[in-house]
Design a protein around this nucleic acid. Structure first.
Lengths: 223, 223
DNA sequence: CTGGAAATGTTCAATATAGAACACCGCCGC
DNA sequence: GCGGCGGTGTTCTATATTGAACATTTCCAG
C-alpha cells in the first residue's frame, strides 16, 4: 500500500520515434487501455519499453499483500530497463497503464545492439538513467526525512508538475486516495485526513477536479 | 538522521584501473583518510569518481539538520555521476570516506568523451547505473513496506554481504548505531533497542566485533 | 594512567501511525 | 428507480516512533 515517483525526462533534441523507426527498432507498437498491464512483477524480462504517449504506474507487492507505487512514468520515459544488465532478468515491479497509452517495445537484444552502435541513443539513455536515479533517490530521502503529511504535499506538487512546465496553480488528473496512499507509504484514511486539512487551509480544492496552489503547498513542504 | 544502501557492483571482465590508465584518464588518483570528504552537498559538480579501494558514505542533510545516509559505496562503484547529465550540476549529497580510500578522479569532460568513444567502458557504466537504480529502488520499497525493526535486519544483512560473496555468518566492519539509524531512517535509541533484542535472540553477536547469523536474521526479515 | 569524548544502554512521555470499522455519497448498468 | 460499488469522510484503539534525558561503558590522546 505505498509509494511515490513522477519521473520527468530531460528535454533533449532527440526524436525517439523517428530514430527507433530508422534504426529498424520500435517496429512493435503497443496500445494499451486504462488498467491494462505491460508486465507483472516476477515475469521474465526480455524487452524494454518507451512511453510514446500516456501514463504508466509501476507497483510492487509485498509478502503481506501491501501494494506500493514506485513511480509514475509519462511520455519520454523508459520502462523495464532492468532486463539489460541482469543475467536472468525478472521484472521487479508491475507496470500498468493508468490512461490510454502507446508504447514502443524494444527487444532485449535489439536494445543491447543499439546501445552499442548508436551514440546518440546511448547518450539519451544514460541521461535518462541518471535522471531516474536522482529521482528515486529524492523519493528515498523524502521517506527518510519527512512525515506522511509532507510526503503527501510533495506528491501533490509533483503530480501538479507532471508533464507540465511549472504552473503556479494546476488541475491534477484524477487520482484516488488509495493510490496516493500507496505512493507515499501510508494508509488511505491518513490521506483522507490530510487532504481535508489541506482543503480547509486553502492549499488545495476539489469537488470534481483536484487543483493545488503550489506556492502554498510548498510552504508546508519546506517547513 | 537517516538511510540505507550498500551498492554492490556487478562482476565484469573489466579492469577499470588499467583501462583508465590506457585511455589517458584516471591520471588523478586521490588517497583519502578516514573521515575525509570527497565533496559536499551543494558543491559544484565537475568530476566523477571511481572507488579503487576503501569505502565511501553518501549522506544528505535536511533543512532541520537531520542526516540521512543514502548509500555505502565500495570497490568498483562510481561516485558523483550526477554531474554528467545536468546542465548546472550540483552535488546532491556529501561523500565521506569511512575507511582509508583510493579514488580515481575523472573530469566531467573526460567522462563524456570516454563514454562516447569507448564502448566497453560505456557498457560497464550503464550496467552500473542499472544496478544502482534497482538498489535504490529496493531501499525505497523497504522504506515503504517495512517497520524499522525489519529495516535494521535488512541493513545488517546487506552489510554482512558487502564486498563478500555470500557467507552464512559474517563479521561486519565497525559501524556506529548512529550511522545505522541514519541508514534506516530512525533514531539511535531505537537501533540500540533492536540491536539488543537481536542479540538476546541470538541473531547477532557483538563485544568488540559485530557478527550476524544471516539465516536467522533472514527469518525476521521475511516475516 | 587519566580525563574527556564518543558510543552505547535505558527510560519515559508526547505523538504519529496503522488498521479496522462504519456511514455516506454519486455514478452506472439494468 | 434499484442495487451495487468504488471512492470518501470520520472515528477509535492498539502500537510504533520520536526525541530528549541520563547513566554507563569504551576508546584514545596526551
Amino acid at each position: 500500500m505505498k509509494t511515490l515517483s513522477t519521473s520527468r525526462p530531460k528535454r533533449l533534441a532527440f526524436q525517439p520515434k523517428a530514430f527507433l523507426a530508422k534504426s529498424g527498432l520500435g517496429r512493435t507498437i503497443l496500445d494499451l487501455k486504462k488498467r491494462q498491464t505491460v508486465f507483472a512483477q516476477g515475469d521474465a524480462a526480455d524487452a524494454v519499453f518507451y512511453v510514446q504517449k500516456g501514463r504508466i504506474k509501476l507497483t510492487v507487492i509485498s509478502k503481506r499483500g501491501k501494494e506500493a507505487t514506485i513511480a509514475l512514468l509519462g511520455t519520454g520515459n523508459f520502462l523495464g530497463e532492468e532486463c539489460i544488465a541482469a543475467i536472468q532478468p525478472q521484472r521487479m515491479a508491475t507496470a500498468t497503464a493508468i490512461t490510454p497509452t502507446t508504447l514502443l517495445k524494444i527487444e532485449r537484444k535489439e536494445m543491447a545492439r543499439v546501445l552499442h552502435e548508436e551514440k546518440l541513443f546511448s547518450e539519451v539513455f544514460v541521461s535518462y538513467l541518471l535522471a531516474r536515479n536522482t529521482r528515486i533517490q529524492e523519493d528515498l530521502v523524502d521517506q527518510l526525512f519527512n512525515s506522511s503529511e509532507k510526503r503527501l504535499a510533495r506528491a501533490l506538487l509533483l503530480l501538479a508538475q507532471f508533464g507540465k512546465e511549472s504552473a503556479p496553480e494546476t488541475v491534477i488528473p484524477k487520482i484516488s486516495q488509495e493510490t496516493l496512499a500507496e505512493m507515499i507509504g501510508t494508509t488511505r484514511s491518513r490521506v483522507s485526513f490530510f487532504m481535508n486539512r489541506f482543503r480547509k487551509l486553502g492549499f488545495i480544492e476539489y469537488n470534481g477536479k483536484l487543483s493545488v496552489h503550489s506556492s502554498l503547498l510548498n510552504i508546508i513542504l519546506h517547513d
